[in-house]
């Protein structure tokens, strides 16, 4: 369990994290979501005792991280894909880290195996791709078999297979009763991975709730409907609490009625429907809505409402 109380970090005149309080519970994946520069990494570094807070405190399993007798066995962190001397081999890097806690070589081999690094373990980290670097960082985080795992942007630079692997891994770790705290600036990834979300923007907590609540809390669920009789279907669906938007000639977006209800109406009235998609994007929209005033670096060229930056956060 991670508990932050009034955690604050000020760099000169700039407040990176402004008095945030939150609790990360064991046994579920907690997502830490926010635009670039929102204070995610700074918060995580403060949890790990690497940056000292200007004010407030943060404890891991009841104690400040630095007070734990065996830190690596308590909490494992991936803070930066390449927190590694790149001239050292992956194996030697893990071996040196393991040595601080007398973690046996067999465990080093185990995490190498787990993260799929067996083929490159004896190679210098210098030649690693970003994705391999992430895997090495995750291997290091798992080394001490810790109760609490913190991963800062773990899917950054991973290929689709790697993304799925991280998703399953964190879910598995949480199912074992561990505390998993995972940051990202990608809403879509969080939607698939996290059980609980803490949304941060400009150093302040904007939302702290189960993911389902965040989705339903903002706007109603919508359904995309394609039909060859859009006007007729619109008339049929019109009613209290139901709104229909026309996007293309045969494409409607319906809110206020679930897909089953829409299908029932269409069937009863012999209207052919050839697509019926519940729109998950509402989560993304909820996020955009939540963070629209908090985004630090606005793009000057907007390519569309749902185009979050793909670049890695720091």
């Amino acid at each position: 369990m991670i508990e932050a109380k009034g955690l604050t970090k000020v760099y000169g005149e700039k407040t990176a994290v402004g008095g945030v309080s939150f609790t990360v519970q064991a046994g579920r994946v907690t997502g830490f979501l926010g635009p670039n520069g929102a204070g995610k990494s700074t918060t995580m570094r403060m949890i790990m005792g690497l940056d000292s807070p200007t004010a407030g405190s943060v404890t891991v399993n009841g104690e400040p991280f630095a007070q734990h007798k065996a830190p690596l066995r308590e909490i494992g962190a991936l803070l930066d894909a390449k927190a590694v001397h790149t001239s050292r081999t992956a194996y030697n890097h893990l071996l040196a880290m393991a040595a601080t806690h007398s973690i046996p070589k067999s465990r080093v081999h185990e995490v190498i195996e787990m993260t799929g690094l067996s083929d490159v373990a004896k190679k210098k980290v210098k030649g690693f791709s970003l994705g391999m670097g992430q895997r090495l960082g995750i291997a290091a985080a798992l080394l001490g078999d810790p109760q609490t795992i913190i991963l800062d942007e773990p899917v950054n630079g991973l290929d689709p297979e790697g993304v799925v692997w991280v998703r399953n891994l964190v879910k598995y770790l949480a199912s074992e009763g561990r505390t998993v705290f995972l940051s990202s600036h990608l809403m879509s990834e969080m939607a698939l991975t996290a059980d609980h979300l803490i949304v941060i923007g400009r150093g302040k907590i904007i939302a702290d709730a189960p993911i389902a609540e965040i989705i339903t809390g903002k706007g109603q669920a919508r359904t995309r409907v394609r039909t060859d009789q859009p006007e007729r279907l619109m008339q049929l669906l019109a009613g209290t609490g139901v709104s229909v938007e026309v996007h293309e000639r045969e494409l409607l977006e319906v809110s206020g009625l679930d897909p089953r209800g829409i299908a029932r109406t269409a069937l009863d009235n012999q209207v052919m429907v050839y697509e019926l998609t519940p729109l998950q994007a509402s989560l993304e929209e909820a996020y955009m809505e939540l963070t629209k005033d908090e985004v630090e670096y606005h793009s000057h060229i907007t390519t569309g409402a749902s185009a979050p930056a793909q670049a890695g956060g720091k």
Binding site: A26, G27, N61, H68, K69, A70, P71, L72, R73, E74, T100, H101, S102, I103, G144, P146, Q147, N168, K171, Y172, S175, E176, G177, R178
Partner: peptide, 20 residues
Amino acid sequence: MSTTTVDRKSIRNSVGPGPA
């Protein structure tokens, strides 16, 4: 993902040697 692992919920507080 297995459900039998849930009984590990009582995961211990750091057993094993620390950084002496």
